[in-house]
Simulated assay, not measured.
Amino acid sequence: MKRRIRGIKNRPRLCVFRSNKHIYAQIIDDSNNQIIASSSTLTQIMKQNMKLSNNCDAARSIGKNIAQKSKALGIREIVFDRQNKIYHGRIQALAEAVRKEGIKF
C-alpha cells in the first residue's frame, strides 16, 4: 500500500511535476488545502531567462525561484514530494537547487 505524502502548516509539501516539455513546483499546505507558492517553466519571467524548458538548467532555475519564494514567506523546512518519479535528472537538479538556497528537507 502506498503512503501519501502530506505537509503540515510549519512544514509544507513541495510538489514537483515533470512533463516532457516543462517542470512545475508548488508549495502546498495540506492542512488548509492551499497552494502557498508556485513556479514553473511556463511563467513569463522564467521563459525570458531560459532557452530550453526541458533540461536540468531550467529545473535548477525553477528550484532556485521556488526556494526564494518560500524563504520570503518564512518557510525554511519542507516535505519533498516527487510524485513517484525517480530522483534523477531534472527532479534531482531542482531538489539540489532548493537545498543550495538553504531549504531543508
Score class of each variant (00 low, 15 high):
95 A>G: 13
15 C>N: 14
68 Q>G: 07
2 K>A: 14
25 A>I: 03
56 C>F: 04
67 A>G: 03
62 I>F: 02
12 P>K: 01
21 K>E: 10
83 Q>G: 11
8 I>N: 11
6 R>T: 14
53 S>N: 12
1 M>N: 13
24 Y>N: 02
83 Q>T: 12
73 L>A: 00
74 G>V: 05
11 R>C: 08
62 I>G: 01
36 I>L: 14
47 K>A: 08
42 L>E: 10
103 I>V: 10
76 R>T: 08
75 I>N: 08
46 M>V: 06
18 R>I: 11
46 M>W: 01
45 I>R: 11
32 N>Y: 13
80 F>W: 09
71 K>R: 05
33 N>Q: 15
91 I>M: 11
96 E>T: 12
19 S>R: 06
4 R>L: 15
87 Y>G: 05
89 G>D: 13
57 D>E: 11
35 I>Q: 12
14 L>H: 00
10 N>Q: 11
8 I>Y: 08
105 F>C: 00
4 R>M: 13
39 S>W: 02
42 L>V: 10
97 A>I: 09
11 R>Y: 03
27 I>G: 01
49 N>F: 10
19 S>D: 07
95 A>P: 09
65 N>P: 02
6 R>W: 07
34 Q>G: 06
4 R>V: 15
49 N>Q: 14
43 T>K: 05
5 I>V: 15
97 A>R: 08
17 F>I: 11
83 Q>K: 08
84 N>V: 12
59 A>V: 04
58 A>F: 02
99 R>C: 02
82 R>N: 11
33 N>I: 13
8 I>Q: 10
2 K>Q: 14
69 K>M: 00
43 T>A: 05
30 D>P: 09
62 I>W: 03
95 A>E: 09
81 D>M: 09
16 V>A: 09
38 S>D: 07
42 L>P: 02
70 S>Y: 00
74 G>P: 01
78 I>R: 01
63 G>T: 05
14 L>A: 04
62 I>N: 04
51 K>I: 13
104 K>F: 01
66 I>D: 01
12 P>R: 02
72 A>C: 05
59 A>C: 05
4 R>W: 07
5 I>T: 13
81 D>K: 10
70 S>K: 00
22 H>Y: 07
58 A>K: 03
98 V>T: 00
53 S>F: 11
4 R>D: 12
20 N>Y: 10
55 N>R: 10
35 I>P: 03
74 G>K: 07
94 L>I: 10
31 S>G: 08
26 Q>S: 08
80 F>L: 14
92 Q>V: 08
56 C>E: 15
75 I>M: 02
29 D>P: 05
54 N>G: 06
5 I>Y: 07
84 N>A: 13
11 R>V: 02
87 Y>W: 11
51 K>S: 10
54 N>W: 04
78 I>Q: 06
31 S>R: 12
2 K>V: 15
2 K>Y: 12
50 M>L: 15
32 N>F: 14
94 L>R: 07
64 K>R: 08
73 L>E: 00
57 D>P: 01
61 S>T: 09
97 A>H: 08
82 R>E: 06
45 I>E: 14
13 R>Y: 03
7 G>R: 08
67 A>Y: 04
80 F>C: 08
66 I>N: 08
87 Y>S: 12
27 I>V: 14
14 L>V: 09
14 L>Y: 00
15 C>H: 12
102 G>F: 00
43 T>M: 09
59 A>K: 06
14 L>R: 01
57 D>W: 05
41 T>Q: 04
68 Q>I: 03
91 I>Y: 09
